[in-house]
């Protein structure tokens, strides 16, 4: 008698567990549809030079040039997921001379991949002349960006009122990059 009750009990319990623990329709393949679209912003370069920086041994130089080696854009994560980028450059000029900012982007073999430039007007009364430039990297220019390992910045002073040790004003450059990512896989 007791044995049959026990058997009966086991059957009832397992049957109950098997039937009541049902599930509704789920689809784990949805994980493959994942798309994260974060947008990151990062500072790039900044420059803050007084007018007399353009004097070398008493003589005016027209070009200030410098380069930055960077392997960030070749990172596998960036190569895979970066779909768009924007460089925003902003200059504030208080020198009574116009100037041009040129950015040249080179790959590992020193081949020019992309270049862009913009100009700022002079500041006759040393008030702030603010100029903004946004360079968008999409399509071919995005490919160029992902090849880039070196950035060369050139600041070229346009002709005008000569600069001496006491020439007032300065050039300020701020820049940031906006990086649009589409992360569509987890592995």
């Amino acid at each position: 008698m007791q044995k049959s009750v026990f058997k009966y009990l086991i059957i009832v319990v397992s049957f109950a567990l098997a039937t009541i623990s049902c599930t509704k329709d789920v689809d784990f393949n949805q994980a493959n549809d994942i798309l994260l679209t974060p947008v990151f912003e990062s500072d790039l370069v900044y420059i803050n030079v007084p007018a007399n920086k353009f004097l070398v041994e008493g003589h005016e130089v027209l070009n200030l040039k410098d380069s930055v080696n960077i392997d960030f854009f070749q990172d596998e994560f960036i190569v895979d997921y970066l779909v768009k980028a924007e460089f925003m450059l902003e200059t504030t000029n208080t020198i009574n001379r116009a100037f041009t900012v040129q950015v040249d982007m080179f790959d590992a073999f020193n081949q020019l991949q992309h270049t862009f430039s913009f100009s700022s007007g002079a500041s006759p009364n040393n008030g702030e002349v603010v100029t903004q430039h946004i360079e968008v990297f999409e399509g071919n220019s995005l490919v160029a960006l992902k090849n880039t390992t070196k950035l060369v910045f050139t600041l070229t002073i346009q002709p005008g009122e000569p600069i001496n040790e006491s020439t007032p004003g300065r050039i300020i450059l701020k820049s940031k990059g906006t990086f649009y990512l589409n992360i569509d896989s987890l592995l």
């Binding site: 370069v45 900044y46 070398v56 200030l64 040039k65 410098d66 380069s67 701020k174 820049s175």
Partner: peptide, 17 residues
């Protein structure tokens, strides 16, 4: 981090950042 500040050449002799 506030970005890279290229040190423009003092003498134009090609010193870089």
């Amino acid at each position: 981090f506030e970005g890279v500040n290229p040190i423009f050449p003092e003498t134009g002799s090609g010193q870089t950042a």
